[in-house]
Design a binder for these strands. Sequence first.
DNA 1: CCCAGGGA
DNA 2: TCCCTGGGG
Length: 338
Amino acid sequence: MGVDISGIIEKAEIDIGQLSGKRIAIDAYNALYQFVSAIRQADGRPLSDADGRPTSHLIGILHRNLRLLQAGVLPVYVFDGAPNRLKFGTLEKRREAKNRAESRYREAIEKKDMERAYSLAMQTTRLTDEMIAESTRMLSLMGIPYLMAPEDGEAQASHMAREGEVWATASQDFDTMLFGSPRTVRNLTLSSRRRTPGKSGFSQVRLELVDLEYNLKRLGLSREQMVDMAILIGTDFNEGIMGIGPKKALKIILGSSRIEDTAYAGAPGLEQLDTVRRIFLEPAYTENYSLEWKRPDADGILDFLCTEHEFDRQNVAQAVDSLRAIDTDSQQSLDRWM
DNA sequence: CCCAGGGA
DNA sequence: TCCCTGGGG
């Protein structure tokens, strides 16, 4: 999930209207995980068609993007490429955690503890290659641009924001700040309710905007120092130091300015310091993409969802009609003036 | 995730 | 009008 420095970051609550006419680069994996973990039936299993194939990702993409486009937002989805080898450890840990959650889920189902089963089911969420392929196909049909990052999707999205190709990145974690995204939108949804893993029921969430420069200035850090702080805490690419969270890390870096000047220089958990720094400060990116929002392929969407996946034809037709009523052309020309 | 529907 | 619940595939 990336490094959690939420506690020391100031966010501004914003209204969706403030994103109208703006291009937002969305961390695709992050968004898809939300869909697949949140869109479930009562026993926790994802929604699926008659053949048992999952459909949560498709429902999520259809409805979320319909609402975003209606609000005037111009979304572009950035998918992860091949993970950096320093991420292998994190990925392995996630796999193990999912396996554990799966066996606990089965236990909870046997004990008929549905509430626990539901929350465990959310932790078993996996994105398969087929779901990724279907997601990009769905985006194409909706006329929404997407691209594959060479490595980390958040790094690519952040590069695009730095270059001014998009106004902001959208992700739930704070790695986009480390990657240098000037603005990060969190909780990019139209509804303000969210199911959270580990808890039953819903909690309120508000659309938030995180401004990188503002936060760096307020904390008295350079971005390089913020990256060092994250490395002390632990990132997807290194373990970090046990017992050091955002508060202590901030104090340490404000006192010593860089990891080499602290007592933690060379400590286990901080191996390959310069490589990890470079992952955040000089990330791999591509400029080989085009941002164009096209008219939706109405028949294509109906075929895909209703013929291939047995969605209700009337529901989908209604969504498609709403989609066709949106004038993305004028939003794109409006966007030039912002 | 988002929506529709019903009750407070 | 808000809040909660059930449904979607």
